[in-house]
């Protein structure tokens, strides 16, 4: 038995991986990400781009494949990436490693997307995500490691997708994997047992972290409720965030309804405000004209004065 295995398997560009069981050959393009449990590469099979996860620890692969298979059973909207292949490959003529292949989601992480497209995108994204979480929960699973980096906005469809199923846990069990800042246990707001409220807490922290005033990655802050007050850009969503942090939403659907309500209220307020805004815009606008006219007049007067002199 090895005492401290490191999960990373290094693969280089153009390296070919041939599956021992299913005989498909994958060509590595580049490294997409590296975690505590393995590495994800962009690869091609024929003309198709795929994401390939490989780990020294074959139980990591087996566990995630089990989850992806369970999620596959849901019809309609995909929960997590689609599983395409599971196999072993001999790397560099020596070691055999387990890997799995899934659909490649060409997306932008939540944080980057909000930064370049604006906070208002939180509304459609939240609706999509909470719908997916609701389905996942109904299936008997909790996502677990919900954080902005695991939420990708697909560049093509502009829809939110959940990636990295390493934390997905059967309801009622201990959360398999989590990230400190999004874990309600860390904030002393609850335990680590897998239940819908666990994900909704984490999603509330995801929303919070989108406010430029908030730095959640700061050790020493212990009170998430106090921290929420500093998220001034998210003021309309505060009531929803508080409720989620306190575990008062029993389902993702309830949280989604509340967020949608805030959104429509916002839209109404803006509609009511907008005619006023136009008025406001008009009122100052005549002034430059007056100033212009008067300045021209005064110049003329000055010139006239000179002529007379």
């Amino acid at each position: 038995m090895t005492s401290s295995i490191h999960p990373t398997v290094r693969l280089t560009k153009h390296q070919r991986l041939k599956g021992i069981w299913n005989k498909r050959t994958y060509s590595i393009v580049k490294l997409l990400g590296e975690g505590a449990r393995g590495s994800i590469y962009l690869a091609t099979v024929g003309q198709k781009q795929v994401a390939l996860k490989i780990s020294q620890d074959s139980s990591v692969i087996a566990a995630e494949v089990n989850v992806l298979k369970a999620l596959k059973k849901v019809q309609g909207m995909p929960l997590g990436p689609l599983l395409l292949d599971v196999d072993d490959a001999t790397i560099n003529h020596s070691q055999k490693h387990a890997f799995y292949v899934m659909e490649f989601i060409d997306g932008v992480p939540l944080g980057d997307w909000i930064q370049s497209h604006g906070l208002s995108w939180l509304f459609p994204i939240s609706s999509q995500l909470l719908t997916q979480l609701k389905q996942l929960h109904e299936l008997g699973y909790i996502f677990g490691d919900l954080k902005p980096d695991n939420i990708l906005i697909d560049k093509q469809t502009k829809r939110a997708r959940l990636v990295d199923v390493g934390g997905v846990t059967q309801r009622g069990r201990a959360i398999r994997e989590y990230t400190t800042w999004f874990d309600r246990g860390y904030w002393k707001m609850g335990d680590r047992r897998a239940e819908p409220q666990y994900d909704l807490f984490a999603y509330a922290v995801c929303m919070l972290s989108m406010d430029p005033h908030i730095k959640i990655h700061k050790p020493g802050q212990k009170d998430i409720i106090k921290l929420t007050q500093q998220a001034t850009n998210l003021k309309p969503l505060h009531s929803v965030i508080y409720k989620a942090l306190k575990g008062q939403y029993l389902s993702a659907h309830d949280m989604k309804k509340d967020i949608e309500q805030v959104n429509s209220r916002q839209a109404r307020v803006q509609k009511q405000r907008s005619p006023k805004k136009r008025k406001n815009k008009r009122t100052p606008s005549p002034w430059p004209e007056v100033i212009g006219i008067s300045s021209i007049l005064s110049i003329h007067l000055v010139l006239f004065y000179f002529f007379i002199m």
Partner: peptide, 22 residues
């Protein structure tokens, strides 16, 4: 060895390991 099993069976073994671990 666990590694000698086809991926399908390995998934089943993993499930047992996880159930026990919990």
């Amino acid at each position: 060895d666990e590694e000698d099993l086809p991926p399908e069976t390995r998934g089943e073994v993993q499930r047992v390991v996880e159930d026990l671990g919990e």
